[in-house]
Design a protein around this nucleic acid. Sequence first.
RNA 1: GGCCCAUUGGUGAAAUGGUUAACACAUCGCCCUCUCAAGGCGACAUUCAUGGGUUCAAAUCCCAUAUGGGUCACCA
Length: 555
Amino acid sequence: MTRNEYADFLLPNVNHSKEEYENIFKERESKGNFVTRIAPSPTGFVHVGTLYTGFVASKFARQNNGTYILRIEDTDQKRLVEGGVSEIVKVLDDYGIKFDEGMKDETTSYGEYGPYIQSQRKDIYQAFAKYLIERDLAYPCFMSEEELNEIRSNQEARKQRIGIYGRYARFRNISIEDAIERINNGEKYIIRLKSPGNFDNKVYVDDAIKGNLEFPENDLDIVIIKHDGLPTYHFAHLVDDHLMHVTHVIRADEWVSSLPIHAQLFDIFEYERPIYAHLSPLMKKDGDITRKLSKRKDPEAAVSHYHETGIPKEALMIYIMTVANSNFEAWFDKCTDGNFMDFELTFDKVSTSGALFDLDKIINISKNYLSKISAKELYERTLEYTNEYDREFYDLLKKYENYSINVLNIERECERPRKDIDSYSSVRKEISYMYDELFNPNYSIKEYYDINFLEDYFENYYSISDDKNTWFDKIKECASKYNYCANNKEYKANPESYKGNISHACEVIRVCATGKEQTPDLYEILKLLGKDRIKIRFEQFKKCFYEVNPIWDTL
RNA sequence: GGCCCAUUGGUGAAAUGGUUAACACAUCGCCCUCUCAAGGCGACAUUCAUGGGUUCAAAUCCCAUAUGGGUCACCA
């Protein structure tokens, strides 16, 4: 049997040859100068790390007028989750990451270099594997799981390098006849690379982020085709990235250690190696230890977490930008139009050590972002959020649309807008007292609260048509009658001779009208509440006040 | 254990051999203000993991050590 027949025997039913595939997928005529991709697995969970890498890759593709591909890596059939592809597509799209080629949902795709889902590329991988077998650069391996485990524990015990190499590669030189016999006897096999590497030689890779990296050559006979006929990551990386003419492989740090394997694979096929850029992982401080943000342990590792907590997408993206390039922040401070996407990312500014994922910083970015959008926009987005997570509040927002927008507009369109709202979920907490349906005050009546002052003020002084200065002057005037000192310096000099100062007087009004000691601008609030509602709230306050001070009038 | 990478304050970091180690977040203080949220001002690394070296000069270059991280699957 010739080697070609042998390859056919090991991998039957392969429709095309490697050369045929190479001819089908010619280089792109346009936008081929910078081709990159993201290759997630559809496990039903989108990690912020995926968003991070995906975003960085998309940004570089866009900056270079290149091509960005979404390829789905579903070669591990055990981990697949139904709807996983659509989930990835939806999340990335939500966050503004657009593709030129790739999967659209579970089954459909667009682009000329597909299929873009690995399970449908089986024939292609096998064609490439056959090429290797024909050249005696790959072989069938019949070792059982038990045998593999045994080798590993032996190596561990003897403090040797772990893996299938040298004398551990038991089937490396199996004869064609022997292999055929075993297969005819029903023995299971996988295909291993017959690594031409030597551990004593060096291989060099110039990573766009990490710089010059030096490794021992790979001498591991890695698996290239698994039992189910699908490739391992390494082999798929070679085949897909070559056939899709990917020029830049931007991926997570965890792949750095596989670089000798990848370099070797490209070298064997005499393909030009892509430029690699390895992004350091996002970290998390867990007690005393620092570790990668973990899907299982950290809720904030899921992109969905930010959706659920109402962090604006833009805020997350701005944060991701600051992690990607630390000079982004200074640039963004000066950026007047808020188009953070205009920033030009560079590889040499990407940190080489993993950054702790900083939730405080995200909150800070979020509140700054939310302070700059219009009340109308905040309203729309909060509506969208509450529609999903807080129907009660959603109904109120819907019912009082204009009023709600006005409430959200308090201290907004000005030079120094309010920054109390840090997420869509915090809107309710910050403005709920403006809705009678949610107004449920738990007054704590202080000794300097004067019900007569309040009554007098609302009856005889407050007018909704006053401008702000007049309004404040009137408070001072009325408060003075009840021994609240209108002049702060005087008050500070002699606090014991007054009931309080003007701040205390305002506090009484504020607590009565809102049930809270701290709110935004009182003037605006009273105006939006209107006289009738203020009156009702006053009566409610009065009742409570007399429960605490039954003999107030006689004091 | 092997291989690879990293190490500047609580956090993200700037600095690319040359004055008092930028800036931002967090924290704390003061000021302003009708209270908050802000904003302004200030504090917070006597020193860049440690030890050696090179140099007139080191956070920056070299060596060693320590610590942390990644990886060593028929997972990606």
